[in-house]
């Protein structure tokens, strides 16, 4: 099974500006698996996603991250993207003046091995946007500039569909979505998840009703304190996290 291992995080300790955030986190994800991470605000969920993607503000003080069996430390952020890693941001950055269409075209061209060009790209783009019920007018808007929360999340998923990642990290992609948008976004995730490794960070069961996780992890204070199946997500939503503190 080793060849199908996509992400392995080993006893990871991470600090931000000298403050320890992740404290001994371990996690392995294989191709075709969907993992969900749940936890209170401030538990370190976004930190995990960011550090895997290579955000320079996060310092790994000990432990290792492997992608497809290779250590990640020497890869720059854009090289990770080109190697097939993708992060759907909790708070996507605004890039004023850069049109979504231009941005997507360039991004696909730099990430995909054999990127579709010209008409082929436009065809793929149109199909992906239709799946996500996104209007063509998105393409001439500036990246995330003046976007509603839901629009931002849709654009993240659109990028995921086009970039076809092998590892998808989805950080609270469901927040701020109404039920219709959630369904649409879930379809997008399922499409990509079938053939990749997927890590879903969420507070809510409602996304997990639509995207069935194989594993659910409860995270507290920078570490995974419990792992279970889909039933753990229901339990966490029902009981909160306090009971874990007692048992941990």
């Amino acid at each position: 099974m080793l060849s199908d291992e996509i992400l392995r995080v080993e006893n990871l300790y991470v600090s931000v500006e000298g403050t320890p955030i992740l404290k001994g986190l371990s996690l392995t994800i294989h191709r075709g698996e969907i993992h969900a991470i749940m936890g209170r605000n401030g538990a370190g969920k976004s930190t995990l996603a960011n550090v895997v993607m290579g955000h320079p503000a996060y310092e790994i003080t000990s432990g290792n991250i492997f992608y497809k069996g290779e250590p990640l430390e020497d890869l720059e952020v854009f090289q990770r993207a080109r190697a097939g890693m993708f992060l759907s941001f909790q708070y996507p950055a605004v890039i004023p003046g850069v049109q979504v269409g231009t941005f997507l075209k360039k991004s696909v061209a730099s990430v995909r091995d054999d990127p579709p060009k010209g008409r082929a790209f436009r065809k793929e783009l149109t199909a992906a946007m239709e799946k996500l019920s996104m209007d063509k007018s998105f393409l001439s808007r500036y990246v995330n500039d003046g976007f509603s929360g839901g629009e931002k999340k849709r654009l993240e998923i659109l990028q995921m569909l086009l970039l076809q990642p092998h590892l998808a990290l989805l950080d609270e992609t469901d927040s701020g979505l109404d039920i219709d948008a959630l369904r649409i976004v879930a379809q997008g995730i399922n499409e990509v998840a079938a053939d990749s490794a997927c890590l879903i960070i969420t507070h809510y069961q409602r996304l997990l009703d639509l995207v069935k996780p194989h594993y659910v992890h409860a995270m507290m204070d920078g570490a995974i304190v419990r792992t279970g199946g889909p039933e753990l997500a229901l339990e966490l939503e029902d009981r909160g996290y306090d009971w874990l503190e007692v048992t941990a």
């Binding site: 960011n50 993607m53 290579g54 955000h55 320079p56 503000a57 720059e76 952020v77 854009f78 990770r80 993207a81 080109r82 993708f86 992060l87 941001f89 708070y91 996507p92 950055a93 605004v94 890039i95 004023p96 003046g97 850069v98 941005f103 360039k106 991004s107 730099s110 990430v111 500036y142 990246v143 990028q159 970039l163």
Partner: peptide
């Protein structure tokens, strides 16, 4: 240029130089 903008663009496959190029072109876009 904010680190978050650079990180976002680099996570989409742009090198730091390419990301800067996009940001400055965007800045002049009006």
């Amino acid at each position: 240029v904010s680190n978050d903008q650079l990180f976002y663009l680099m996570s989409r496959g742009f090198s730091e130089e390419e990301a800067m190029g996009l940001i400055v072109n965007g800045f002049f876009e009006p």
